[in-house]
Design a protein around this nucleic acid. Structure first.
Length: 214
DNA sequence: GACCAGGTCCTTG
DNA sequence: CAAGGACATGGT
């Protein structure tokens, strides 16, 4: 058991190990870069099942690529992504990102030539791309070592008695993941799965991570 | 019918 | 900087 004086670093390592034991290798958000960028926007404040609905609709409409989105009418995009909610603002964000990629890089492939830090800054300059969205794109779309901090991560960390800014949490997890993209992907996936399983009114008390706190 | 979901932006104090 | 609201559909 963790002692009351265990450091944040130790607690994070314990969480990472506990989740790895529980879920192990899982296939999670394995998709081409264009699809990850689209999904990263659409999943904002939205359940993943609804994102899949929109992704299917976009695919059927031939709009599941950055060039296609950059050239599409807002009306067609809105119709396809309506099932994810916030469909007007998400359409604007998709178009902003697609136009940014096309104008600044020409293609998705050219983006991959950039250093991670610069690519992150570039993504953050797009209206509608915040830190979580940018890191999701980096981690899952471009296999970079960017750890995604989301609401679930904050909640689980808070339960474990770990407090701090997103930047601090990100540094803590990145310190535990040994610079391997596969571990970055898996750990964030594990956190989401665990949170969906235990961070509900009903099952919060069964969550063993609470006991790490003091 | 209330409440929440893998955020982000904008406005106020 | 912290807090509060807007954005909107779909599931419990």
């Amino acid at each position: 058991m963790m002692s009351a004086s265990s450091s944040d670093r130790e607690r994070v390592q314990t969480i990472v190990d506990l989740l790895d034991d529980r879920y192990g290798k899982i296939d999670w958000w394995n998709a081409p870069p264009d699809e990850v960028m689209v999904g990263a926007i659409l999943t904002q404040q939205t359940r993943w099942e609804n994102v899949e609905c929109a992704v299917d609709r976009l695919r059927e409409a031939g709009l599941l690529s950055i060039p296609a989105i950059a050239a599409a009418s807002p009306e067609r995009l809105e119709e396809a992504v309506r099932c994810t909610g916030f469909y007007r603002v998400k359409t604007r964000r998709l178009v902003a990102l697609a136009e940014f990629v096309v104008h600044r890089f020409g293609s998705t492939g050219a983006m991959d030539l950039m250093e991670s830090d610069e690519l992150r800054q570039a993504l953050l300059s797009v209206r509608g791309v915040g830190e979580e969205t940018a890191d999701s794109i980096l981690c899952y779309g471009f296999s970079r070592n960017a750890f995604v901090i989301d609401a679930y991560t904050r909640r689980i960390c808070a339960c474990a008695g770990i407090t701090g800014t997103d930047a601090m949490l990100r540094a803590l997890f990145e310190g535990a993941l040994l610079g391997q993209n596969e571990r970055y992907r898996l750990t964030h996936a594990h956190i989401v799965e665990y949170a969906k399983e235990f961070c509900s009114r009903k099952r919060c008390e069964e969550c063993s991570i609470r006991s790490f706190n003091g």
